[in-house]
Design a protein around this nucleic acid. Structure first.
Length: 650
DNA sequence: TCAATCCGTATC
DNA sequence: ATACGGATTGAC
């Protein structure tokens, strides 16, 4: 007999089913293989979870219809991982398999791949010696121990080289490694760094833009154990590396690590699950640090890899805040670009020293929000700490989460009672800034026109966050403009995200260069950057969120759908006794969602938030999944989207 | 009393 | 989706 999981999106079918195995399929039906089965009269795809002697099912068993290819696509380890990811995010096994196993490509299966490269030498630990606990981490990976660490990368660090060394240590110990980075540019840099230290064919790149055949080929090389190291974007955390010894997540605050397909798992959290389950070492790395990483440290689960203060001071450029009152430069060209005098001078110095200048300009399109008129503290709801915004109808401030309107608001910092809408959106354009530096080459890197690298020499680069090109030797100066509009976004992660973007840009500046931030020096986010203390900022962020009842210490579930459907789901769900319902607010469907719905209005959509203490998170997910299973079995009502610890809360 | 039909539920 | 079982209905 074979126990299988069927490929169905219906939650009530998310459990094993037993089938008899015809004698001629006995050899190829093994745990992890793909099969076709007759299920409720239809032929469907399924995955073999196990071969068994007996079945608990008392009805008649059917025979498996046929095998699909001869490649087992699930390993014992990934099958267990997919199950626990489904459980953690209230999703189905089949949905998670779709995230972790690329579509089959038969031609790629028959192609024979060259055997992997030769013996891997242990790395030179020199590069890690600037960090306390750095060499120890490398030694632990080399020794096959379950070291888990949060690494604060020094500004100017060649992080791809350091990660390549960690992978090298893991391979030298005879085990496999997985590295997930946010985007294709990071993948390319890491690919080059790995190629520099590993024998040929020792690693593969997993990425959707390889095309289906090459992607499946790379994935198969990993699955077959021909290659033991894999790098790629968020889906690489699911790669079926055998005898996993190391998982690395780079820049875990980048929202590209959040999977947009159901059940919406986050690559960092998947990596944590996987490291827990397998005993593989874990490295969460970045110039900045998230509150989630701070919790890994605070709970003692992970160790901190960080450089001593003196080394940080040496490695950091000079970072200063421009303050709130921008003194404009007298130079008329600079005036027209509205560049503050200090920023303009820093740029001129850099260009005079034949070094490029980086100008970071935020993208437009942030949500308007309310803040204190005096000190711009974001206005929050007294009841649930959600953000306040002006409702379009009445003009009265309303909580974006629980929908309560606010009559008397008082700023928790200055006790002021007046709020104002924060003007949002970048107004400075590349041309305006370029005009301030006549005769200097101006480049833009943004959107779909991203520059990976620029040559040394004087030039001005205008880039949106995340699109900053690297330059050999570093920038001479970086101007981080529009700090206010980043910081006052109506988003739980606004401060953390701002610090992350600033850190990632500032880290590209040479250690004798300077960084100018267009925000007030008194702000915690600015202080974190000036002192280069991303860990301190993450700790504060974690403390704030703990006090407000936000993730990661609390666990939230967001339910989005028609009011009647959500009500039905909640009525069916046996929520943990500690669950707290934060009320419902109408949601304006995004353009993408409207396009998906096909134009015809599905009626009003609302969003309800549920909150539990972190230990009850799995019980909350289980209750919601069970309730969704009852609804799907009944075929009642419309869809309800379930999100656990959603990245965006409004 | 039995067959035709409807409805709800499970799907090995 | 489809298949099955139990309940319901209507005709002999």
């Amino acid at each position: 007999m074979a126990r299988v999981a069927v490929d169905s999106p219906l939650p009530h079918l998310d459990r094993p089913f037993d089938y008899l195995v015809p004698a001629e399929l006995d050899q190829i039906v093994v745990p992890g293989s793909r099969v076709r089965v007759r299920f409720a009269g239809r032929l469907v795809d399924a995955w073999v979870l196990d071969r068994t002697e007996a079945s608990a099912h008392d009805g008649r068993l059917s025979y498996l219809e046929r095998g699909v290819g001869e490649e087992p696509v699930l390993t014992r380890e990934t099958a267990a991982l997919f199950r626990s990811v489904a459980d953690r995010w209230a999703g189905t096994f089949a949905d998670v398999v779709r995230l972790g196993v690329p579509p089959r490509h038969a031609r790629a299966e028959s192609a024979v791949r060259a055997e992997s490269g030769g013996l891997v030498n242990p790395p030179n630990p020199e590069g890690w010696s600037r960090y306390r606990a750095g060499p120890a981490f490398l030694a632990a990976v080399a020794g096959g121990r379950a070291a888990r660490a949060v690494w604060n990368v020094l500004p100017g660090e060649d992080w791809p080289a350091r990660i390549a060394e960690a992978v090298q240590a893991c391979l030298a110990a005879g085990r496999g490694a997985v590295v997930a980075v946010p985007d294709a540019r990071d993948t390319a840099r890491l690919d080059a760094a790995l190629s520099a230290v590993l024998p040929a064919n020792s690693h593969v790149v997993l990425s959707a833009d390889l095309g289906p055949e090459a992607r499946y080929k790379s994935w198969l090389a990993i699955r077959r154990g021909a290659v033991r190291a894999v790098i790629g974007n968020r889906s690489a955390v699911f790669a079926p590396v055998s005898d996993l010894g190391l998982v690395v997540i780079y820049d875990d605050g980048d929202d590209l690590h959040a999977e947009p397909r159901a059940p919406y798992p986050h690559a960092r959290d998947v990596a944590v699950l996987r490291s827990s389950a397998t005993g593989a070492a874990l490295l969460v790395a970045g110039f900045a640090q998230t509150a989630e990483s701070a919790l890994l440290l605070q709970s003692g689960w992970a160790q901190h890899i960080v450089a001593d203060r003196g080394i940080i001071r040496q490695a950091s450029p000079r970072i200063s805040a421009l303050g709130d009152d921008f003194e404009l430069e007298r130079d008329p060209a600079a005036r027209s670009a509205r560049l503050p005098a200090l920023a303009f001078r820093a740029a001129r110095e850099s260009l005079a020293g034949n070094r490029p200048v980086l100008v970071q300009v935020p993208r437009r399109g942030y949500l308007p929000a309310l803040a204190c008129v005096n000190d711009r503290t974001p206005a929050r709801c007294e009841h649930c700490h959600g953000p306040l915004a002006t409702s379009s109808g009445t003009g009265a401030p309303v909580c974006r989460w629980c929908g309560r309107s606010v009559h008397q608001w008082r700023c928790p910092v200055c006790q002021g009672t007046r709020m104002r809408a924060v003007v949002i959106g970048a107004s400075r354009t590349a041309e305006e800034i370029g005009r301030a530096f006549p005769g200097v080459v101006t480049r833009t890197s943004a959107g779909d026109q991203i520059l990976a690298e620029i040559p040394e020499g004087p030039s001005v680069v205008i880039a949106t966050p995340g699109a900053e090109p690297v330059v050999p030797g570093g920038y001479g100066a970086a101007l981080l403009l529009d700090g206010w509009s980043l910081l006052s976004r109506a988003d739980l992660r606004a401060a953390e995200e701002t610090v992350r973007r600033w850190c990632n840009a500032a880290a590209l500046v040479a250690c004798d260069g300077q960084v100018m931030i267009g925000a007030d020096a008194g702000l915690a986010a600015v202080q974190a950057l000036v002192r280069w203390d991303p860990a301190g900022h993450a700790e504060r962020e974690l403390a704030d969120r703990t006090e407000l009842g936000f993730p990661p210490v609390a666990r939230l579930a967001s339910l989005t759908g028609a009011p009647a459907d959500i009500a039905e789901l909640l009525a069916l769900a046996h929520l943990p006794p500690t669950a707290e319902e934060l009320g419902a607010v109408p949601v304006t469907p995004s353009k993408a969602a409207r396009a998906q719905a096909g134009g015809d209005g599905q009626g009003e959509q609302i969003r309800t938030l549920l909150r539990v203490p972190r230990p009850a998170g799995v019980a909350l997910a289980e209750a919601l999944h069970a309730a969704a299973a009852i609804r799907s079995a009944r075929k009642s009502g419309g869809p309800v989207r379930i999100d656990l610890d959603p990245l965006e809360l409004f």
